[in-house]
Write a protein that binds this DNA or RNA. Structure first.
Lengths: 212, 212
DNA sequence: TTACAGAGACCGACTAGTCTGTCCTTATAA
DNA sequence: TTATAAGGACAGACTAGTCGGTCTCTGTAA
């Protein structure tokens, strides 16, 4: 029964603390106190508090970026690709909720080089979605009259905002939430022609009467 | 030519600075330097830096809350109410973009009583949208199979996220962006029966071919 | 004279980061 | 197998600087 390496423990502990109190609401002393180590232990593993923040950002954005690329490669139509990307992202909330919160809450405080590296990956992510939507508009599956750029940001916003309200022990599982997002998206974007595709019904929720 | 009162100048100046560098990235000294006053001037108008942060939060949330209530009262169908609320909110970006950024970025750092007051208003806002969606589902205008709660948060997310990317001198005006949001929403939510309503076409973008 | 708005030197608490030293594991030579 | 050397992981006292907030003083308008 081996103990986890200190570096991982520092990341995990600080993550929970940052999520609750914010990056500036937690001191290095509090972090080392909480995971039972020392200043020495901390600065042996990280060059600075900033580097810890960068580390947290990078783990998360690299992970979702990989999932998005996978989703793009594993499917071949705009609709299935978009839905797969959305679903892969929402699923990450179960695993990386604290990372995501820190990512969107504290990225202002990333300095110079750290900020540039993260922004580059963030932009890459955005461009994948933008590309899927453009391809959908070009082949007639998606409605052409809505701006692809704005739609991209609307989708990203809808999904990302989940970090503000999602509770792991809430009523709906994260998969279910992802399905609702996809259902809304498909209705908002897909044309009648695009709807004729058979497998699109995979992404739609079954209509049911409201109980009275 | 009367000068603006110092208190307002402090708010305006700090807002711009907070938006760029974050609440913790700006010191009181920097604020008073930037608006040509002194520590004395600052602490004569605010009990603490926290109170300034609260002030900024309150101005913004109170404003949008009033606009939402107005929009609800001025319209009578779920669709028109929802669209009016969304439009009133997006329009606020022209006026209050820095407030909004600070609101969503720094609310973690509001202490005790301040936090509770802001959260109460924020919750009130959420409930207005939730109510409109429920009413739409009950009268058959909105699709009943999507969860009203999740849809509410999806909408709020889509709109709120605008603060992360909207540029005042960008390609599209904020009104145009609001119209796209409404178009997406109407397609995502409204039933065929609900679509029969005449004035719904006000909220839809005109279909046009993509130039090749 | 009074009341209030603002100036700015000053303070004390706090915090990121440093530095020296210790322990423990592992490699190596006898 | 054992003695010894070396290097990495960590401990924790310490430092230098920063920042929110206070206090006293000044100018001004009624």
């Amino acid at each position: 029964m081996k103990k986890k390496p200190l570096k991982a423990r520092i990341v995990e502990t600080s993550l929970v603390m940052f999520e609750k109190h914010g990056y500036h609401g937690v001191t290095v002393d509090q972090i080392v106190e909480e995971c039972g180590t020392s200043k020495g232990g901390f600065y042996h593993n990280f060059k600075s508090k900033d580097e810890l923040l960068y580390n947290i950002h990078d783990v998360f954005i690299s992970y979702v970026l990989d999932r998005a690329k996978e989703a793009y490669d594993n499917y071949s139509t705009p609709t299935s690709r978009l839905c797969a990307i959305i679903l892969s992202f929402t699923k990450v909330f179960d695993l990386y909720k604290p990372h995501i919160t820190v990512f969107y809450q504290e990225s202002t405080y990333l300095k110079g080089d750290f900020q540039e590296k993260i922004n580059a990956k963030r932009d890459e992510y955005r461009k994948i979605i933008l590309r899927v939507i453009r391809e959908g508009q070009e082949n007639g599956d998606f409605r052409p009259e809505v701006s692809a750029e704005i739609t991209t940001m609307a989708i990203i916003g809808m999904v990302n905002w989940t970090y503000k309200w999602f509770k792991k022990d809430g009523e709906l599982s994260i998969e279910k939430i992802g399905e609702i997002f996809n259902d809304l998206l498909v209705h908002a974007l897909v044309t009648e022609k695009g709807m004729e595709n058979q497998d699109i019904h995979t992404y739609l929720l079954k209509s049911q009467l409201i109980s009275e």
